[in-house]
């Protein structure tokens, strides 16, 4: 097949041999790339055992009823039908997750980029120290629990104390148990925590941008740092931007810990429910793994879809 294709390409005879060598038949190409396969072999061997197999098993489980004690029982599309047609809480959680991701995803992403870019202006130990300060909310998994002090519902909660002192309210607000405050608080906390994986990869990415590009840019008439950012820096670090976007998607859609620790699971009237809190409810409280797997599969496709969208947008950077 591949041989025929190369023949059809109307190239000179001298080129033809090289082309044939390069394209070859599939088995020849595989043989030629044996060094590549050897290098990826250890990783993908493990990847098969510890990622592909569990993921496939979970997708299969999503078509069963599985309570973790008895052998899974085939259930067809029942889990999915229940999910979309009967489970009102899931629909609420789904809506919450979309709202949350649409707001925090892009804002967090731009914050990562902005702060990485600013920190890149600093040098030496100061830079490492500043990076630590901004990364601090992500460095220990439970750092966001300090927000419990701020939003504590009694009058010793810091926000309540402040508001009472200045006369904005005349009685303490129960921030974490009031439906209308839950989503905004969750978004604020997530934004505060947003300088994580993407942020560090941007910082490393900025270090690898070729410095001579800036001089060349200055000669070509780039006048300020914003133009420099858009026309030189960002296109040069497009691989990192892609990486950051994927990490951002996985973080924004999979939010759960913040919601559970701050508002409980279930939260008041499910105002803080997200797809993953719902999933955790079914997997770790009710032990309905088949149903939980179905939720995970839906979330998986939701993330894939948004990933496609974001990657398309990122291709236009610097145009």
């Amino acid at each position: 097949m591949a041989d025929q294709k190369t023949k059809q390409l109307n190239t000179g005879d001298a080129d033809y041999e090289q082309m044939a060598k390069k394209a070859g038949s599939l088995s020849k190409r595989i043989f030629h790339a044996r060094a590549s396969y050897l290098m990826i072999a250890p990783y993908f061997f493990l990847f098969f055992f510890f990622t592909i197999m569990p993921v496939c098993a979970s997708i299969l489980l999503s078509f069963t009823y599985f309570n973790m004690l008895e052998f899974p029982e085939f259930a067809g599309w029942a889990n999915y039908l229940k999910l979309f047609l009967e489970d009102e809480i899931f629909l609420k959680a789904f809506k919450n997750t979309i709202v949350f991701a649409v707001i925090t995803g892009p804002v967090s992403y731009f914050m990562c980029l902005l702060f990485a870019w600013i920190i890149n202006e600093f040098h030496g130990k100061l830079r490492a120290f500043l990076t630590l300060i901004f990364y601090a909310p992500s460095i220990s998994g439970q750092a966001y629990l300090v927000w419990l002090l701020i939003f504590s519902g009694d009058r010793y909660g810091w926000l309540n104390g402040f508001l009472l002192n200045w006369g904005f309210v005349n009685q303490p607000q129960i921030w974490l148990k009031t439906e209308k405050y839950i989503m905004p608080i969750m978004i604020v906390i997530q934004l505060w925590m947003s300088l994580g994986t993407g942020f560090l990869s941007f910082i490393a990415g900025l270090q690898t941008v070729d410095k001579s590009l800036y001089e060349a840019g200055a000669m070509d008439g780039i006048k300020n740092r914003w133009q420099e950012l858009w026309y030189i820096t960002l296109p040069a670090m497009r691989p990192q931007l892609m990486f950051g976007a994927v990490m951002q998607i996985t973080q924004s859609f999979a939010v759960a810990d913040v919601s559970i620790q701050m508002f409980g699971n279930p939260s008041v009237n499910y105002a803080g429910a997200t797809v993953v809190t719902h999933l955790l409810d079914y997997s770790t409280t009710r032990f309905e793994m088949g149903y939980a797997s179905a939720i995970a599969t839906v979330l998986f496709f939701l993330m894939i879809g948004s990933n496609k969208l974001v990657q398309r947008l990122l291709r236009r950077v610097g145009e």
């Binding site: 993921v55 999933l279 995970a296």
Partner: peptide, 19 residues
Amino acid sequence: VVLSMMFSYTVTQIPNYMI
């Protein structure tokens, strides 16, 4: 590899444990 990061690890824990 990229897509695998989008699968919630909570539900893969049981298959993982079995493996």
